[in-house]
Design a protein around this nucleic acid. Structure first.
Lengths: 356, 356
DNA sequence: ATGTTCGTTGCATACGAATGCAAAATCGCC
DNA sequence: GGCGATTTTGCATTCGTATGCAACGAACAT
């Protein structure tokens, strides 16, 4: 049982005294671009090293009004897409000398309590992945001058930026692919009903099919969850109108769906049923699954996200910016192949119809 | 182009003025247990709400010398075990009103630069997952009064706590299981050479086999990496002494190994080769793999980790504490079954030999 | 009415670093 | 060596909150 007091660290004043200079000199030594002679600088650095001094980022934040912390709110970490994103974000933010305060395990609705926490730390920016934000809160961020970026979601709300891929075109491309593969009946396993990704992918899919005179799509909902996707798959495969081509709204669900198809219904993929996913993430590439999937360029999406944040932090202008990137339909073995339209790029097979 | 200045937030003084009280009163309103009458408290809360005031955690940290931030250093996010851990950690820390500053994408060696960053934020504690720490740094943390917990790693170094499972016993249990399954030749695909988990699992495995007079174990190294595990598997399966029982040091690699076995070597699992993994994580449970695997109780490991941190933060006593938890050998379909020793628990099949 | 006690309140200061301003030191040039 | 120009330096203040201390007020007992 101790007092519970953390030993105080070395302060700039202590370093100053030790080096025989003022506290200002110490501060300037650790402030890039500040006016300081290299002689005193060396003295300070020597003393700092000897005393084990490290600038206190907390104190610095207080006066600069910059925490150099970015809040990241992320759920669905069980979907490997997001750990992937997280890892890239960590890298990209570190490169800009920013740090990542992670809030996790919150679903769409209750992002508000977590929001309170994150605002208390005066974060310089907010990244919302697989989560949305109420309009009051996004408004509050805007007036507080804190940039917000939705990652892999989008919203009409101004003052909230977003980074996505062309989900509608992706859905459409998948429709083209499946039609070109000679399929006659089509199904869709949906993600979260109110998510923009799900809405756009489905819309594109339906449009694409409609372009070929197909108006009926068997739909079940998996809510981007593995367990629910399994149930959705079971319902789908017991329908009298079981489709021969199935678009599953993301790979995370597609993996679950494939296991159900093969091991619970004895379906052969792609002979009995073609399955196409979305994200082109980890397990999609494993030989057991080999999912034909629309890719989302994680690295470029992350770059765009950080780019938007850095811009808005530097300029102080919070103005919604929507970056929309392109993906490719990576062709593997989970769906029947069309006669034409498949090209090779970077060692991968890509579906690229002529009119695209 | 703006000045680039973030609009300053509402301060306690502004709230004080608005409510007609002193700044101290505002502070006390938001400090649990402080001396304040409910009348002024109400006044303050009303004004705070009206102005949209939120206490500034940065300023608070400065004076309390407590940031309520825990640094988490984590690599190998591609192994779903770690996202799992991350999600639990987020939950557990949030429950204690702590926050999670994530550092990712760093391997064992270069944890030192990241360490500099994390010390600048005066974090109240450090969790190192899949990473270690040089002795100087751990020493520095100890003298600074910052508790450090190694997660799923351990070290002899005092002043550094750790949370692990009984890896040696786990390796041994796997040996017993494979021997009981009637296998005659044994192999091991190793994880990171210098990690304690790999060392302990292997040691237990070898000991367990030795207990049955088996002294030869075919070994290849996959370094806990998917790609390297594939190569290791290829080498393993082309050896003249290809074993019929294979322990892969974690599930993340085991999945890769199974794909190589089936699709590159046409091996049937478990008829031609039995495979056992470690972690009992996501993909291990998927029907395509159904890996027989030693489980690590993520939730309890996280609880123990947070527990240690909270204790040491509260007491100020930095004293190494090593929590070692138990796992179970969850039996699925990737390895031949022994005649006896399999019991059912919580809807899972567990291998529990009589002497255990 | 007076004195005592206890709970509230405000004042003043501290936390550690950054920065505008003016003083001091350095440099260049004639 | 002297003067102006320029760089370097230190002083003092600031950021937003917590907290020791003293003053204050209310409640109660005498």
């Amino acid at each position: 049982m101790d007092s519970g007091v953390k030993k105080p660290g070395v302060t700039s004043s202590q370093v100053a005294e030790h080096a025989g200079v003022s506290q200002s000199a110490v501060s300037r030594t650790f402030t890039p671009g500040a006016s300081i002679s290299s002689k005193t600088r060396q003295k300070v650095l020597a003393s700092a090293k000897e005393l084990g001094y490290r600038p206190n980022a907390i104190a610095r934040s207080l006066i600069t009004n910059r925490s150099r912390i970015i809040a990241v709110v992320m759920a669905y970490l069980e979907n490997l897409f997001y750990p992937d994103v997280l890892e890239e974000l960590g890298r990209a933010l570190a490169a800009e000398n920013y740090h990542l305060l992670l809030f996790t395990g919150f679903m769409d609705r209750d992002s508000d309590p977590v929001f309170d926490q994150l605002m208390q730390y005066r974060v310089d920016g907010i990244i919302l992945a697989s989560t949305s934000l109420s309009s009051e809160l996004s408004e509050e961020c805007a007036t507080a001058g804190i940039p917000v970026v939705l990652f892999n979601r989008t919203t009409e709300r101004d003052a909230v930026s977003s980074v996505t891929t062309r989900n509608r075109e992706g859905g459409k491309r998948i429709a083209e692919f499946l039609v070109a593969g000679g399929h006659k009946s089509f199904g869709y396993i949906a993600g979260l009903e109110n998510s923009s990704t799900n809405r756009d992918r489905f819309q594109g899919y339906v449009e694409g099919l409609a372009g070929h005179g197909i108006t009926s799509v068997a739909t079940e909902t998996g809510n981007y969850s593995r367990v629910e996707a399994q149930d959705a798959a079971r319902r789908m495969f017991t329908r009298p109108d079981r489709p021969e081509a199935l678009f599953v709204a993301n790979d995370h669900m597609a993996v679950a769906v494939m296991d159900v198809a093969r091991y619970e219904f004895g379906l052969r993929i792609p002979q009995d049923i073609s399955i196409v996913g979305y994200d082109d993430v980890g397990p999609a590439t494993w030989t057991s699954y080999g999912i034909t999937s629309m890719s989302q360029p994680v690295k470029r999406m992350v770059e765009a996200t950080v780019d938007i944040l850095m811009d808005q932090i530097a300029s102080g202008e919070i103005e919604a910016e929507h970056r929309i990137l392109n993906g490719d339909l990576v062709v593997r073995t989970s769906a029947r192949l069309p006669q034409s339209g498949i090209v090779s790029r970077d060692g991968q097979q890509i579906f690229r119809p002529k009119e695209a």
